[in-house]
Amino acid sequence: MESRAKILQALSKKFTDSPAPLPEVKVFPPVAGEPVDKFEFILRGIGGRTVRVNSYSEINDFIAKEYTSNARIISLVKEVSGSAITPDIDPHTFENVDLVILQPHFGVAENGAAWITSDRMGDRALPFISQHIALVITTDSILHNMHEAYDRIGNTNQPFGTFIAGPSKTADIEQSLVLGAHGPKSMTVFLLSVNR
């Protein structure tokens, strides 16, 4: 703990008579247009796929068409079919999961990201280890930008949370974009319309 004292000691020296104040974080006006359209546009641009649906059954039909019955599908969305997970299971056992379906809290139009916390992941490893990922987001839960996002997150106290924007990717080999670096090779977002 000697270093702790040493570092704090060095930092406690006064550098300046007028320390820089913490600036206001301005509320920037959102760009015009429907956030859900923008979200869709941006997410497609970064390798994600969006599917507009009106009901959960449409989602189930869609998945049923793409996956055979022996695919390992885990769903954390109760209206979407798939197996559930047992608590405290070793995360390594998810290695052969083909698809995981999750429901984030909201999406962000400006960057195509979706915010999800550990309480909605089943296991924290699932969004990353699964071969493919699908998210269900209602069209009324797309925010404009990251400032709104952190407003919404507020001081909620979840052990783990992440923004996910598209499938796992890399461009490390000569800047050619490859989807499916270590995590999911595809990401599908079901935009579920809600009639208000």
Partner: peptide, 21 residues
């Protein structure tokens, strides 16, 4: 990410607050 690679955000921006059980 916009400054780094021109992406609107990195694919994952993970907030680690507490260790997993």
């Amino acid at each position: 990410a916009r400054s780094a690679t021109g992406q609107p955000v990195t694919t994952y921006s993970s907030h680690f607050r507490k260790p997993r059980p």
